[in-house]
Design a binder for these strands. Structure first.
Lengths: 192, 192
DNA sequence: TGCTAAACGGATGGCCCATCCGCATGGTTC
DNA sequence: GAACCATGCGGATGGGCCATCCGTTTAGCA
């Protein structure tokens, strides 16, 4: 029910998000003052669009979260419970180590943007369902709780971040860490 | 070869470390100005003893690091490679989730206090040796590298931190996460 | 007791943050 | 196409945190 943005405002909004994206990608801490300078816009303009750095960060991360949420929904249609769960989690960790905007958003307890909360809930619920199905099918140990999933994904991303390396290596590492974890939680031996 | 501290300086040093310990335990970010206020000392005094928050943090974490390093040396004497490795790692993750001073110190790439560097190197080297032995004994998959150990321990601590809970739960959770990981990296099936 | 080096303390300037309000401009109506 | 208004813009500015620097104090020693 928000009136559509005025044309200049829409242009500035995009510009701010774009510059924020660049800053995040280059590892610079996201400071709204800094964003204002780089966009050439006034500080007030930036603060009106995004009241806090978190709000801007979540906006930058949104497209990626949308994709992950969609992937969660799709994984629910997989007939193989193990593949559904592991496939979804693979996408999540890969996104986490690929997009620097994601880890802080994923780890945050509260969100500045309502849509972010929705998306996170959607993903959490998909994960929980996938896990429940896998457990019911007897392919994962019962001692992995749904509430463990998000922290574990964040933990893996954190570990990968500490080891560093180029993007390709990071993705590979994340998959290896996740695979080890899942292997340890599996009840059936891996098919050679 | 540092001349011993004057009596008042030594007293203040201890007092600063003690207050810092409390602040860390209660989750307050470690700000030297804040430490000064709470100790009743002047800001200058605190800054002279510890040039940066990191230096103070590392000093607070030092006793725990000493214990872990000692444990690493002891684990090297274990005749069972698997038990030696897992026992050491258990102590590390337990310490990480128990002492809030540890995670940032463990994750930091560079250290403000020389002794910290020594201790971290000692622990890393113990871990590497334990891992090599386990691999040579054929009990862990060869795709776990020594360089993975520290990040993984930090990752687990991070995950536990996100899930939260009381100290006992946290320790339990850390052990469960570590166990799952190690199980996935083990070559021999667990003995029931 | 007097001297000196070591340690203390906090006033202070620099920096970053975010608010607020006078000004500009897009959009709409006639 | 002119006039009006709501929406948006910009940046000057006050507040808060940080860390340095130097005049003062004190421990240790002869």
């Amino acid at each position: 029910m928000t009136t559509p943005l005025r044309k200049d405002a829409a242009r500035n909004w995009k510009r701010i998000v774009s510059v924020a994206r660049d800053l995040i990608d280059e590892g610079t801490p996201l400071q709204l003052n800094d964003v204002a300078r780089r966009t050439g816009l006034g500080v007030g303009t930036v603060y009106r669009h995004f009241a806090t750095p978190e709000a801007l960060l979540e906006t930058v991360a949104a497209p990626c979260l949308e994709r992950l949420a969609a992937h969660g929904r799709q994984a629910l249609t997989d007939t193989d419970p193990w593949r559904g769960l592991t496939g979804f989690l693979s996408h999540v960790v890969e996104a986490q180590v690929t997009d620097a905007a994601l880890p802080p958003v994923a780890a945050a307890a509260t969100d500045a943007v309502p849509r972010t909360t929705e998306l996170k809930k959607s993903m959490a619920s998909a994960g929980a369902t996938l896990l429940a199905r896998a457990r019911d099918a007897g392919v994962v140990r019962p001692d992995l709780a749904a509430a463990d999933l998000v922290p574990l994904m964040c933990g893996i991303a954190h570990a990968v971040g500490l080891r560093g390396g180029n993007p390709a290596d990071r993705v590979d590492l994340a998959h290896r860490y996740l695979a080890a974890f899942l292997e340890g939680l599996r009840t059936t031996p891996p098919t050679a």
